[in-house]
Design a protein around this nucleic acid. Structure first.
Lengths: 208, 208
DNA sequence: TAATCTACCAAACACTTGTTAGGGAAGGAG
DNA sequence: CTCCTTCCCTAACAAGTGTTTGGTAGATTA
């Protein structure tokens, strides 16, 4: 931490932030593959080509790496979600936009989503990660609200338990992170399109 | 291990097996809540009201507890799946039966399913847990085959990517273990019914 | 009653864990 | 050339890890 007020190290400041992101990306990948608590700081350091102690020059704990990975992801996610929710779309269009943004987010923050999927429930009990629980509440409010609006507008079926439907939607979207590989055969938009078609129209064949 | 051939300790033999199952149920619950590698043998022992070392009278390692939990679950699952698959049902009825059996299995082996969901991908790389990978292959064959039969019989839509559809179905069914609580408001059969209705008919309202 | 077995405890073991402290090479700044 | 900052290494620490060994109260058997 510099105490003097001279900002003459522009280049090093930039590369420090870049290195930080680089290391976080590596850590996120290992966390996602092996699970958070099965991941040792030595494994992260190995993957980054350095020794365990050296990580503590950039971060002050293993937990703070996880924290930064998850909060960065959630911040970006909610920026996009909020944009969708305040766009004044109808229920069906809102649902479609939320699903599409979700798959795009899986594409961008693949590792972070996988970590979130595996660890969020368990982490939510810790005070430091209370924002995970709050995020889930906002999540539920957004999706449930959209579904209920759709039922009221006779766009969605009224004979289904809305809460069950919400859980199915939420889980199926996010669990895709467990098999999705960025750069694969299907683009996020293509996956979203097929998923929405399946969920909205059903997979059964209805001869008109 | 008795070397003599007298089987005169019927009662202790029975209660030993019962105690084993009891301890496995406790371990499964802790594994499911905290994650396998975040769970210490001392936590399991605490939950069981004994000391860590005492667990090794019943089991020879922490890993073998996990192994027994997962393999017991998969054995029972496949017994029921095989019964469905060899019943000679049509594609739609097969799908419905598979889904229903899955939710029943979540009801029965709730903790084991949660563990399987979280750890199977990572565990599958270890030789000891290779049966997890093989099980997943059988899984894919059964579901994919049913879907393809349904498409050929014009029971399911032909314009969806079958592999994507399979993944959505599989994930949505099993991920329900993360929020399902045995003895809750909905029975497994009720959940299966609603899930099938949503997946087969879609959630959009179609005015006939 | 004496011998045996069951199911646990008490205490330690070797090892791994996250984390810290001091040092040093490289390179830019003066 | 000298100073200083950046970024990493070396080496160690204390706490926690799965596991083992020897013992023992209490029930069961002979």
């Amino acid at each position: 931490m510099p105490k003097s007020s001279n900002d003459n190290r522009k280049k090093t400041t930039v590369s420090q932030a870049e290195r930080r992101e680089e290391l976080l990306a590596i850590a996120a990948r290992v966390f996602a593959e092996q699970g958070y608590s099965a991941t040792t700081v030595r494994k992260i350091a190995d993957a980054a080509g350095m020794l365990a102690g050296s990580l503590y020059y950039h971060f002050d704990s293993k937990e703070s790496m996880l924290d930064e990975i998850l909060s960065t992801f959630l911040d970006e996610l909610w920026a996009r979600y909020d944009a969708v929710l305040s766009a004044g779309l109808g229920p069906r269009q809102t649902l479609e936009a939320l699903v599409t943004e979700s798959f795009r987010e899986i594409d961008r923050h693949h590792a972070a989503v996988a970590i979130y999927q595996k660890e969020s429930r368990h982490l939510g009990t810790q005070p430091r990660f209370a924002y995970l629980v709050e995020s889930q509440r906002k999540f539920e409010k957004a999706w449930l609200g959209t579904l209920e609006r759709g039922v009221a507008a006779k766009v969605f079926r009224a004979d289904l338990d809305v809460r069950l439907t919400y859980r199915f939607l939420r889980d199926t979207v996010w669990v895709a992170a467990s098999w999705y590989r960025p750069g694969g055969r299907h683009s996020p938009e293509e996956i979203a399109r097929q998923y929405l078609s399946m969920v909205l129209e059903g997979i059964a064949l209805h001869e008109a």
